[in-house]
């Protein structure tokens, strides 16, 4: 009988699983350990994002590639044909696409993260689990799109006669700061937009401005010498340049800029977690 097992009274739970409820927020260590315990949930939520995304679509994963590719094509007509932006001797499409792939990772991860809490309102008001999982799952689902469009990067490069060498493996270095940064901004925007819905409108607008502040569709070389430092201090710039350089052999950004990108993204991440923790307690009341 299956029910016999259920009739045994549960053994007293260990003290570690006790729950203390009071007006004070959780300590950061508790936040971290709860988050770790919820990793299965994180994974299932990421999977859910994917399944829902490709449910009942005829072209499925093709859509993922189409977006950065079309944007790259549009910019190659604009900048490669009309304006003739220098592209370090590489056909403009091949030059713009890898940068666009990284940029898409950033903007997608940011945008999905920033609308995530509002989208999961029903969950948040009905059941408790570490809420941090929600923006994380949303942001990290963008990694799948990124993987698919990176795979396409190889045939595109080969088509234009570029042979990616072992430098390709260096591209991995560009991903962590992008993800940390995008997730942090996603966390910040989503938890603050629970209270101030204005931010939902502001987020895509901010991404758009940010796009033109990052050397995605133009090379760093066209930026006046005295402004380059500022462009490189933009924490998205170095990873974008780094990723492109490791695939198609353009010039790498200075190593300090990648290091500062890591540094800035970690600082923003800590800030985001601290703010999230403060907002989390009253979140269900605002939703």
């Amino acid at each position: 009988m299956t029910n016999d097992r259920n009739l045994v009274a549960p053994s007293p739970p260990p003290e570690a699983s006790w729950i203390h409820i009071d007006g004070d927020g959780q300590r950061l260590t508790e936040v971290a350990s709860e988050f770790w315990k919820a990793r299965e949930l994180l994974w299932l939520l990421i999977l859910r994002h994917l399944k829902i995304r490709f449910a009942q679509t005829a072209m499925g994963a093709m859509w993922v590639v189409l977006q950065p590719l079309t944007t790259a094509l549009i910019f190659s007509v604009l900048f490669g044909v009309f304006v003739k932006v220098p592209s370090e001797g590489i056909p403009y499409v091949a030059y713009a696409y890898p940068a666009m792939v990284v940029w898409s990772l950033f903007s997608q991860a940011f945008e999905r993260g920033s609308s995530s809490l509002m989208a999961e309102e029903r969950l948040i008001t009905k059941v408790y689990f570490p809420r941090l999982v929600i923006p994380f799952a949303a942001s990290f689902s963008a990694l799948v799109d990124f993987a698919i469009s990176t795979l396409l990067l190889v045939p595109i490069s080969l088509f234009f006669g570029i042979r990616p060498g072992f430098g390709v493996f260096a591209s991995v270095m560009a991903i962590p700061p992008i993800m940390i940064l995008a997730t942090s901004f996603g966390i910040l925007t989503s938890c603050l937009s629970v209270r101030y819905r204005d931010l939902r409108t502001a987020a895509p607008f901010a991404t758009q401005i940010w796009f033109y502040a990052t050397p995605v569709v133009f090379p760093l070389a066209v930026v006046p010498q005295n402004l380059r430092v500022w462009v490189l201090l933009n924490p998205v710039s170095a990873p974008v340049l780094w990723f492109r350089a490791s695939f198609i052999g353009t010039s790498f950004p200075p190593i300090w800029s990648l290091a500062s990108s890591y540094g800035i993204s970690l600082v923003i991440f800590s800030l985001a977690v601290v703010i999230f923790r403060r907002v989390e307690r009253g979140m269900a009341d605002w939703l």
Partner: peptide, 28 residues
Amino acid sequence: VLCRITAPNAGSALIRGRIGSLLEVGTG
């Protein structure tokens, strides 16, 4: 408050065990 969906403003509660909440059908 007891299932931690929202935080209290005063007082405290201690639950010596894990807690599950069934507030609606079809959560998630």
